[in-house]
Design a protein around this nucleic acid. Structure first.
Lengths: 329, 329
DNA sequence: CCCAACGTTGAAAACGTTTTCATAGCGCGT
DNA sequence: ACGCGCTATGAAAACGTTTTCAACGTTGGG
């Protein structure tokens, strides 16, 4: 039916080996190369990537496994990863786990069957902890979250510092009853919480942290409950963009004025955070850089498999807006 | 090195054909099936999908080609498509074109080489017009945008009606100087504009439409220019969520009060549109349904390749919020 | 002038599966 | 008891490439 490399070879009057060498890289005389290229154009030949992959044992494919592409943080990182991948001639298979360890396992198995070159993965703590070093047939680069130290390359935000920075900023603004709302499934949320608690302790304040499933609805519900309690906090630090949105919704529903009744700060400098009134104070993550660095770690690992494990820690940028009060206060 | 089907066959004391039949679906006695399944577990066998695809000539893979995954509309549709695809045992290859016809061509060629089962595609008008019926080796389902009628299956919003609805709503609120800001590369923007212009004409109003490259920056710049002109419109209809964000930014920069100085309405009921003050009036697109319907059209087409071309037109939902004024005015 | 070395080419093997085809075994109707 | 049809199974071909290996012609050194 469709035209194969044999047809091209016949049309060019050469062997399939020569056609293959023209398409890939191999020693071919200029004359033959021209003939073959003409034949390729004439026949409209399209190489069959499945066959190529089978024979060459190089799939030129990476897996990208995230919690939910609709989380703007992952959206942005994905885009950066895909750009870098396609630029390097790699295909990307995207998987959404919804923070479900079972789906994580399922997709990891799928990646093995695909014989992918490598995987970029944002795991829940549940599977990150169980992830053994060489047990999968490909290198894994962790993003946003980490597993046990020393096992896998990874690129993360300096979450402890970021959590601390938000507390320091709020304290500087004169707030002291600062609550923390964190996701329950990721190492990242844990680290941000650690930073929050350390900073609170350093300031001699009592930390009060709660954890929720990492989605806007759960965060909104918990925040609404919390803020209706008598001893409600005067400020809330929220561990990611999704949860922050939920918390803001809760504040709106309860008709709490921000920052008057409640100061609000969180993570992820998403486009909408400076369109709401007041703008939200957040720690911005360098999303493009995270994606690029993840790909770089993966390439390095593929080049030198026995290189020591590396972890890239990137700094966040505190973006101060109205939701944490006026500078003069 | 890695364990193949021959190893499993040897371990189970059967032929590779039998193993293959156990893994796929074929007639195998219960006894042998159990033996093979045990051998699979014992050896930790993972089928090689490249080999499977080559031999079976079924790639179980679809392409999803959109402008930019960071556009929340495409994010949501992608997620729906991926869910449906994985549920059906299909892999998804995601591509971002940035509305660039050259990259669209590049990725379509890639899809041919991948021998994909089908493609779901949001094309620019430039390539949509050049897209011939059977010229690619796989069926194409268009989403969000359409090409020449009768060539490809597709699922779109009723864009003309939606554009009309926004005009009618604004007129009902007593606004008459209504401008339209539309993207320049998609059939969708053109249709929304057509609906806008038809409705304006019906109301005896003079339409004033401008087009921009479909990204927030370009829209913001054009809106800022426009709104600084002497005869600036009293309302703006904006053709998608990205552009709407740009327009809102421009209004904020110029310190125009919404809806007092400027009423604002657009498309895509993104989460942030009801968090800004005032909330934005938008036509909501049924994003999940669009993704699901696209997959359904694709499946149907694969089952019956000669079925007549179908176009699914979904209705939008007008979500009225403060940005278009108060009901009582 | 001969032989070694080199670079280009083609024939054929290999990649790991699925699928075809032939066969063995079995139950059943006559 | 015979043959017919049906099912389960295995041997081997096939999928479309890349890669190995051997052979070829050419060049350059001795």
């Amino acid at each position: 039916m469709s035209v194969g490399i044999r047809d091209v070879a016949r049309a060019a009057g050469v062997s399939t080996a020569t056609v293959s060498r023209v398409l890939g890289k191999g020693p071919v005389s200029e004359a033959l190369r021209a003939q073959v290229e003409a034949a390729v154009r004439a026949t409209g030949y399209r190489p069959n990537l499945s066959a190529r992959r089978l024979r060459s044992r190089e799939t030129q494919t990476i897996g990208l496994i995230v919690a939910d592409i609709r989380n703007p943080f992952f959206t942005a990182v994905s885009r950066a990863v895909e750009d870098a991948a396609y630029a390097a001639g790699l295909r990307v298979i995207l998987c959404n786990t919804d923070e479900d360890p079972q789906r994580e396992a399922l997709y990891l198995r799928l990646m093995e069957e695909e014989r992918v070159t490598g995987v970029i993965f944002a795991p829940t703590t549940a599977t990150a902890d169980g992830l053994r070093a060489g047990s999968l047939g490909f290198p894994v680069v962790l993003i946003d979250r980490t597993g046990p130290p020393g096992l896998h390359d990874g690129v993360v935000l300096d979450n402890v510092a970021a959590g601390t920075a938000l507390v320091d900023h709020l304290v500087e603004r004169g707030v002291s009853r600062i609550g923390g709302l964190f996701g329950s499934t990721s190492s990242t949320a844990r680290e941000r919480r650690a930073g929050y608690e350390a900073a609170m302790a350093r300031h001699g304040l009592a930390p009060e942290a709660r954890t929720v499933l990492p989605n806007a609805e759960a965060a909104g519900a918990e925040a609404a409950r919390w803020l209706a309690e008598p001893g409600r906090p005067a400020a809330l630090i929220v561990s990611n963009g999704l949860l922050l949105m939920g918390a803001l919704r809760a504040a709106r529903t309860l008709r709490l004025s921000v920052p008057g009744d409640l100061a609000l700060a969180g993570f992820d400098n998403e486009p909408w955070t400076d369109l709401v009134e007041p703008g939200l104070t957040v720690v911005e993550q360098p999303v493009d850089e995270i994606g690029r660095q993840a790909m770089r770690l993966l390439f390095d690992r593929l080049e030198r498999p026995d290189q020591p494990v590396r972890r890239v820690v990137l700094g966040g940028r505190l973006v101060v807006r109205g939701s944490t009060g006026r500078a003069g206060s």
